[in-house]
Simulated scan of single mutants.
Amino acid sequence: MKKFINEFKTFIARGNVMDMAVGVIIGGAFKAIADSLTADIIMPILGIFTSEVSFADLSVTVGGAVITYGNFINAILNFLIMALVVFTMIKGINTFHDKAAALAKKKEAETPPPEPSAEEKLLTEIRDLLKEQNK
């Protein structure tokens, strides 16, 4: 049991877990923004074209059961907004990483190789002399 607890402590102390926790918290806060954007801005604008004030009020009664398909439309729009934001964030991060890698590669190509040390020069001379003697 003690080994299990120690492994769990090690797992929790890793930076990735903390990063993930921050991501979940920020994602939850961003969901509220996406919900508000959908309910307060996008839906009223779409309602102008469909003569519906709110999609959340759209429903149909089938056999005594009320199916509120308007809420489903709201959920789909929220998902699409969240997916678009995540896609653009990932695309931006990948572009940044690609540019940083290209810059590092360019910098590496521009940097001349270091001068050989005195030992390396001496060993090179010895090697060349031995090659000449063997010929």
Rank of each mutant, 00 (worst) to 15 (best):
E52W: 04
I33C: 02
H97M: 07
P113R: 12
M43V: 15
M1T: 09
A118K: 05
V86W: 07
G47T: 08
G15R: 14
T124Y: 01
D35K: 13
K3Q: 11
I42Q: 08
F96L: 11
D35H: 07
A56E: 02
E110K: 06
K99N: 13
L129I: 08
I73D: 04
L84T: 15
L84W: 13
A56I: 03
G64W: 00
T10A: 14
Q133K: 13
A75I: 15
K121Y: 06
D98A: 11
N71H: 05
I41G: 03
G28F: 09
L80F: 12
E115V: 04
G23S: 12
I81N: 01
I33R: 04
I73Y: 04
S51H: 09
A34W: 10
E52I: 03
Q133A: 13
N78F: 00
T38L: 05
I81F: 10
E110L: 10
P112F: 00
L103D: 15
G23F: 04
G27V: 08
G63Q: 06
L122R: 05
D98Y: 04
S36V: 02
E7H: 11
I73G: 03
D98F: 01
K121A: 07
L123Y: 04
K106H: 08
N74K: 15
F30M: 15
S36P: 00
E125T: 08
K131M: 04
K105D: 13
G70V: 01
T111P: 02
L46T: 01
D19N: 14
F30I: 15
T68F: 07
E132W: 05
V66R: 09
I76S: 02
A109D: 14
K99S: 06
K107W: 00
E108R: 10
S59A: 12
M20P: 00
M20A: 14
R127D: 09
P44V: 11
K107A: 11
N94H: 12
V62A: 02
A75E: 14
D35T: 08
I25G: 13
I73V: 11
T124K: 09
L123E: 08
E115S: 01
N134F: 15
V24N: 01
K31S: 15
T111A: 12
L80W: 03
A21T: 12
E108N: 12
F30D: 00
E52A: 14
